[in-house]
Design a protein around this nucleic acid. Structure first.
Lengths: 217, 217
DNA sequence: CGGTCATTTGAGAAGCCTCAATATTAGTGG
DNA sequence: CCACTAATATTGAGGCTTCTCAAATGACCG
């Protein structure tokens, strides 16, 4: 336990946690405009958040893997500003936000943790906003997936792309066809091996090199 | 007073506020990697935040007008993840973050306010990340400037672009030449009137129409 | 086996960038 | 007050990257 919470505090925390799911692929966890009352940590599966613009195009805002928190951007307006959908079987830990905020007043460590979580997400959103080439963006995308899986104990060099090519395209602001072509070229150049949605990083060093501009270190 | 703080609470708040500046145009308020200890609200002037990527290109992350808060994205790592520079004469209110976080534990309203601020910034960053046309992005940029100035009591349809065309380009992920051409075309089409850095919105309705895809309502 | 959907592949077009030249502005010093 | 310089902004021409449209392929499911 590295949280620094004692037993009674953990009991308090436990009181506001609600395990929900599993949700099947395609299930919406919340929709744009829904009243906000809880944030949630992904326990298993992948969640995609997105909005649909006035022209009907889907703008993917992010993919959330196990251990990552969704709903933080809903605090400011008390409504979810985007849709969230399960890309595979998803289970969640649901935290009542009013309750956790109240508890955070008594537990400095928890308040700090929440501030940190929120602050992190600002930076993550800024990442993709940058002006980078197609290759840089794809490399950064694959590398962050790799690192996030690794952080959760999964393999860093071999994992499954739980999202479709179209989802990746809408996330990286490219056409689906471009995703196909870049992945193929990366494979031809020996950077990766991709078969269907199974992905292997065969030359992580060069991927990192490409992604450096985006990820900065 | 709409804050909901009483007199003694305001005194507490006042204790942690430090008015600093003015800083001259070009002055760096902080640099990437600097130790984080305070957030700051802009009192006057404009602040630009940016990072420089490995290829030496400047990636502008945002412009901050009076009333807006800088430094929130530094909380998570305890270091500023970007540079901040004054675009004109800038004055700031500086808040020691450890102190304000401590105070927030006693003032639920303040804690909520901070959560809101942080949450808002997540959404702002996501805005620009979307996949939009040049015209949509430019219209959204001009319209948000207009709204932000209006929120602070300045004119909504006439204001000064305190940043260079190059800054706008680096923010909107376009070439400076493209900025020039779009502004000229907008003017030719009667949407705006631009002379030097003085900008007038002559057809706010059509600007809003263009920006709708980005701003969503 | 047939149908549906995701993905791949190709060809052509469009949009934006790059490069280069010119124009304009602001600042400086005579 | 004016000339000179440097920086910013504008404009034009051509090229490149990515998109769009269309078709073919392959995977999965009943």
């Amino acid at each position: 336990m590295e949280n620094g919470y004692d037993k009674s505090q953990l009991r308090d925390l436990h009181m506001l946690v609600e395990h929900i799911g599993p949700f099947r692929e395609g299930t919406h966890l919340f929709r744009e405009g829904d009243a906000f009352n809880a944030i949630a940590a992904v326990r298993g599966g992948t969640v995609k958040t997105y909005v649909t613009d006035t022209a009907g195009r889907e703008q993917v805002q992010g993919f959330f893997l196990p251990g990552e928190v969704i709903g933080l951007n809903a605090i400011s307006s008390n409504r979810y500003p985007c849709n969230a959908v399960a890309l595979d079987a998803v289970t969640l830990c649901r935290f009542s936000f009013p309750n956790i905020a109240a508890l955070a007043r008594r537990l400095p460590g928890l308040q700090e943790h929440l501030f940190r979580l929120l602050s992190q997400d600002i930076g993550k959103a800024a990442l993709l906003a940058g002006n980078y080439t197609t290759d840089e963006r794809m490399a950064a995308f694959l590398l962050t997936l790799s690192r996030r899986y690794a952080a959760r104990g999964f393999s860093a060099h071999r994992f499954c792309l739980t999202m479709s090519r179209t989802d990746i395209a809408n996330y990286l602001r490219l056409a689906p066809e471009t995703i196909s072509r870049v992945l193929r070229r990366f494979q031809d150049e020996g950077l990766i091996k991709v078969e269907r949605r199974e992905l292997t990083l065969t030359d992580a060093a060069r991927i990192e090199e490409l992604a450096r501009a985006v990820l900065r270190g």
